[in-house]
């Protein structure tokens, strides 16, 4: 398309994930005061953006 670039294609309506509950509880991460759930990875999958920075640095 000339005017629109698709970055993500309907990730919320895909089948295959079903609330197994094995993911981290959002308040156990870093905030403790401002709820954000979308930046929590599913299962063991690492997140984008900051994920390129090794914690060993």
């Amino acid at each position: 398309m000339k005017h629109i670039k698709t970055i993500a294609k309907a990730p919320l309506v895909r089948e295959g994930k079903s609330g197994c509950g094995e993911c981290q509880t959002s308040c156990q991460s870093a905030c403790k005061t401002s709820c954000t759930v979308a930046n929590q990875p599913c299962g063991q999958k690492r997140i984008r953006n900051g994920a390129h920075i090794s914690r060993a640095e």
Partner: peptide, 11 residues
């Protein structure tokens, strides 16, 4: 922390 997001690997 709040700029982390992964639309493909989201919960």
């Amino acid at each position: 922390f709040h700029f982390n997001i992964d639309l493909e690997g989201a919960p």
